[in-house]
Design a protein around this nucleic acid. Sequence first.
DNA 1: TCTTTTTCTGACCATATGGTCAAGACTATG
DNA 2: CATAGTCTTGACCATATGGTCAGAAAAAGA
Lengths: 213, 213
Amino acid sequence: MARAASTKGNTRIQRQKTKQILDAALEVFSTYGFRGSTIDQIAAQAGLSKPNILYYFDGKEAIHGVLLDRLLHTWLEPLEHLGESDNPVDEICAYVTRKLEMSRDYPRESRLFANEILQGAPNIIAELQGPLKSLTDDKCRLIQSWIDEGKIAPLDPHHLIFSIWSTTQHYADFDVQVQAVLGASTTDRFETAQTHLDRLFRAMLTPQKADDI
Amino acid sequence: MARAASTKGNTRIQRQKTKQILDAALEVFSTYGFRGSTIDQIAAQAGLSKPNILYYFDGKEAIHGVLLDRLLHTWLEPLEHLGESDNPVDEICAYVTRKLEMSRDYPRESRLFANEILQGAPNIIAELQGPLKSLTDDKCRLIQSWIDEGKIAPLDPHHLIFSIWSTTQHYADFDVQVQAVLGASTTDRFETAQTHLDRLFRAMLTPQKADDI
DNA sequence: TCTTTTTCTGACCATATGGTCAAGACTATG
DNA sequence: CATAGTCTTGACCATATGGTCAGAAAAAGA
């Protein structure tokens, strides 16, 4: 018999093929969106036949589902690492850097996520309202405590996080536009972006000793 | 006879129906993306029959094309208004505000654009490399001149613009996520975002009289 | 090696979708 | 109010696409 809701993982062949399929699917889904992608495209990309794909997964939606599941874990990881520090400005800037690196190294994942959200997040709305919201609220409390201690400038923690997400993910999701306008090489684009974003958030976060003492 | 590459506009009925169709198409395309949308959906949304839609437009792609054309014009307008000013910080912040208002008032247009870019901008890559790049480069020179005059802090003009685009459009394109995390009402979300973004860019742009004099 | 289990595929099916067309309904106007 | 032109639609077509299935081909065991 050969059942398995979605991911198989027993034999050597199963492990290899499922990985192969998921990688191909990520490539295709992140480029054309869910409805714009076909099993044939994924099959071609994976170098397998369509029925063979359906042998490993219960359908197009199942493949997409597995990708989204894994994605959320990867996606939230950097934020989880945001923690106590005696230099909160550096700590937050390090988070910005990590997020930017993810845009550079995992643009497909970023676009898959963006596609999903753009279309109303039909398949991950629960995760957004659950785990994502919890984690975010949690980190916002941490940020608020830094504000209360005067270690960073006063600002809305939630919107700060939105700004970090948007500015960093922009370099993955809107890469075509960035390239069209900048025309720089990939490394150049990300290096200058890194410098810029660090400066941006540092300026915003560094507390102003307004009227001093 | 009844020819017209795409937009008809002679009789009263033609004007009304084309507008009706374009509005419905914007709704559908911005929600499901080009390939995820069907003519039937557009027809239903517009309250017309499918053949009737095709009487006014030469096909699905033609409708999409018209929408994209109009979009680019609307989209670049705010940036065009960025001009000389004796208070560049205010001038740029006003641009940020205008962009945020567009996210609030025209979220469908924002998502249509995002969808197109995400998928590699197949239909507007030329416009990005042409008009968009020209305009952007142009405004970057203006910003650079402000920097040279010491009126705003030194920073990379291109990346500054990317930051403005990404942070403001985030509230339209990722609205579902923002809602999931914030849970605030629409007006609340945009009001607090406005405050936050103004603070963010003001902090970054205001020149530091580092070693004074 | 022989048998069992897993893996793979060509052929097929049902449905969805972009698009056409001939004919009917409606409108404007001479 | 008749007629030319405009508008609308039901019925249809060709193709694309998600998915199935019976049986062939490999692998894995015994």
